[in-house]
């Protein structure tokens, strides 16, 4: 399923409000693992990335949002790459790590270890995949 919606710019989560949100998210993750339930995650591709999708894919330009199932960052990204195989090499290197100058935010927080794509996701997690400004 694809959706194109104008996206509000994302900023990393900070402060007490975010801590509370993280606790809630962690409890949701525990509930899901206990129930072995998979929910859809929303993946937003920044326009700097989505512009490299083949024009034949019919995707609009600008930020692109998709909804895919997956319990971890790796599962979700694999499903995105199954839909758009050429995207894999833009996001991860051949050793399977997220590229040095690509940033992946999960519910507003940067993914903890770019080499560990097994990082679990909470229910209805939102991933934002963008070019890191460290790359210019």
């Amino acid at each position: 399923m694809y959706a194109y919606r104008p996206q509000r710019p994302r900023t990393p989560c900070i402060g007490k409000r975010c801590w509370v949100a993280r606790v809630i998210a962690q409890r949701r993750m525990l509930f899901l693992s206990l129930n072995k339930e998979r929910s859809l995650a929303k993946v937003v591709l920044a326009s700097a990335l989505s512009r490299w999708l083949p024009s034949s894919s019919g995707m609009p330009t600008g930020e692109v949002a998709l909804e895919v199932a997956g319990a971890s960052i790796g599962e979700v990204l694999d499903r995105v790459f199954a839909l758009h195989p050429n995207l894999r090499g833009y996001v991860v290197d051949e050793q399977g790590a997220v590229r040095h100058h690509v940033a992946v935010f999960v519910d507003g927080d940067a993914m903890r270890d770019k080499r560990n794509l097994a990082q679990p996701l909470g229910e209805r997690a939102e991933l934002y995949v963008m070019q890191a400004l460290s790359g210019g």
């Binding site: 990335l49 490299w52 590229r99 100058h101 690509v102 070019q131």
Partner: peptide
């Protein structure tokens, strides 16, 4: 040489 997305 895409600095963010690697060599293409």
């Amino acid at each position: 040489d895409l600095g963010h997305f690697g060599a293409k």
